[in-house]
Design a protein around this nucleic acid. Structure first.
Lengths: 359, 359
DNA sequence: TATATTTGCTAAAACGCTTGATCAACACGA
DNA sequence: TCGTGTTGATCAAGCGTTTTAGCAAATATA
């Protein structure tokens, strides 16, 4: 890396961007001077205005100057004049806590990018003060809008300042109806799909280990379970619904109760629970899926895909949630204030349920 | 929510921000007019310039106007005049793929925030084109600098355009020495710490299941393992080093070979491997930690903390990596271009290694 | 040849803010 | 009465763009 003199008096400069090693950035004006035109012309060339009349020759001269100088437009100045920024804010309460938030970010990012927006993210870990600061920051950057997301599906009270911007709730919703646009996973459909995996496996007596912790997921998945049963003409038996804390320990601890129910198929509230249940089942000398077919929920990759046997489950559509949130914000998707838009949770079938060869 | 008329002729307006429901944002000028002062004065009040002389009364008037109108400064305009933006860019190759990247973001966020910077993130999923676009975007927003991070520790070639900005490599490094500042986990120390957990457990014959995939982690952890052994006066036995693909299946598959080695303690390249090994061990009727003490690496929460028994492991300091990256970028931490700064990997002891009561 | 039209480009205002230079008003000591 | 300070506030330039109105030259039309 030989530093290159910029004296006009030196030998012919090669057609290579002269790396200005982090001095003042090159401005439009400098490009204009280099090309011997006005800044207006340069601007027109850059933005390829179709109704602007620029001689091909001039256009080339400008382009060369741009390349030569390694010009980068100043986005700040741009948005200042245009009045509207190209930012979308994303405030999340748990990027760190779970892999889930990462997927939301990812989906939002991709979709935002697609429409020429950059993501301004803020992780609040649930801290309300941080949250307020984060929103203030985004407001000051005049974001196009804000995605307010939570790491698990839940009701939330919309922070006051959020209302100063256009916003969409992602993976959460406001309890007071009509207060906000929102996009959430379709828990009922998910619960139904999960149960149907078992149904397709030929099972008619299916247990459901629900969570003890109140949440939309808890109610929704249960409802989905009931719906699936009903659709299959199987009467709902409350005896077959257990409850446990929704993690590995909970699943493990539920083993004994489950075995009392004399079932050969179980739908677990989530993958972590299923993981614990695997251990419990194994300790009882039971094999999966032969002695017990198991279905989880969440499709937590690290777990579900690598359990032995790999776990059939239902995917929480975090990526889609993020993407849909952006589309809704941008007004690309229809959305009402009255009820959250539900995103479907696709089933992911692996080996923890044996395929059923119908007699 | 009654929309509030702003006519000057109406009754005394309550001291509450009149929410401008997303019309044009309020500007400095409007505040100035409302307070009956010049924009300069408002600016001075807002930025609490200490050497500016403003009558207490005026100051109040301005503050009231600000509150009244719900004024939010325009960050774009601000940075435009100041010349330096308050952004730090973070390009990551795998926010989605792993929970790890999330931690890097989190750490970077917190540290950046602490110094008044906002994070501009871009997820590239390893796509070089996306990466170039992302960097260009950041350059246009005149970021203070860019953190270039990878989801696993590895050498990387620095994208050309990255050099246009101030940058720091996070969780990766440039093979050509002196090319870039970088911050990475201290694999050797980590490997050593992991081995020491076993040593403290009273074990002298310790196996190491290394990864088959070449990586700094593979070499570093092995070296750390050797160092720990040497420090304990135990000769290194190549027979005790196995290799497997670094995931659950790999760990499971390594069980047989491991048992041939006649050891009662094993250090696994990562937690996922340990998870698989747990299964293998259990199938052989072996109990952890009594028949086999196991230590992992990575401290992947979902797994390590919830295995049965919970897994002793070593933490990959992703949060710290992100934070240190920001500090290095800002010149708060010393940093040389010649070798990456190493961040320590702290041991996390759980129940997969029995405590040793020294005789 | 005179006039209308098209082409190629520029001047200058505006976007919302910061800041150094100024300035008016007033108080003080000589 | 006059300098000299001090206080409280304003003026105006400038940050890097975009964009509209307009101008001069070239070309087409009659």
């Amino acid at each position: 890396m030989i530093s290159q003199e910029k004296d006009s008096g030196n030998a012919a400069t090669p057609d290579v961007p002269v790396r200005k090693s982090r001095a003042q950035p090159v401005t439009l004006r400098e490009v204009a001077e280099a090309a011997g035109v006005s800044t207006a012309t340069v601007s027109l060339v850059i933005n390829k205005k179709k109704n602007a009349r620029i001689a091909e020759q001039t256009r080339q001269r400008v382009k060369d100057a741009i390349r030569q100088l390694g010009y980068r437009p100043n986005a700040m100045a741009k948005t200042l004049v245009s009045g509207t920024s190209r930012f979308i804010g994303l405030v999340a309460d748990g990027v760190a806590t779970t892999p889930f938030a990462g997927q939301i970010i990812h989906g939002a990012q991709d979709e935002a990018w697609k429409h020429g927006y950059a993501l301004l993210i803020a992780n609040t870990e649930g801290n309300r003060d941080l949250e307020t600061d984060a929103i203030a920051m985004m407001l000051e950057y005049k974001v196009r809008g804000i995605l307010y997301s939570t790491w698990f599906h839940r009701p939330t009270v919309v922070p006051e300042t959020l209302r100063e911007a256009d916003f969409v709730l992602v993976n959460c919703f406001s309890p007071e109806p009509g207060a906000a646009r929102a996009v959430v996973p379709d828990e009922e459909q998910g619960g139904k799909s999960a149960t149907e995996i078992l149904l397709r496996g030929g099972h008619r007596r299916i247990a459901f280990i629900n969570a003890t912790t109140p949440a939309p997921a808890r109610d929704g998945r249960l409802q989905g379970y009931k719906d699936a049963l009903e659709a299959a003409g199987i009467p709902f038996d409350p005896e077959l619904v257990l409850e446990a804390y929704p993690d590995q320990e909970g699943g493990y601890g539920a083993t004994e109760e489950l075995l009392k129910r004399n079932v050969a198929a179980v739908f677990c509230y989530n993958d972590r629970m299923a993981m614990g249940l695997y251990d419990g089942l194994r300790e009882n000398g039971l094999s999966i899926p032969d002695d017990m077919a198991v279905v989880g929920f969440d499709n937590q990759e690290v777990i579900a895909a690598h359990l032995r046997p790999p776990l059939s489950t239902v995917s929480l559509p975090h990526y889609e949630l993020g993407a849909a949130g952006v589309r809704m914000l941008l007004g690309l998707d229809e959305a009402s204030n009255d009820s959250a838009v539900k995103i479907m949770c696709p089933a992911v079938e692996r080996a923890s349920v044996a395929v059923h060869s119908p007699a």
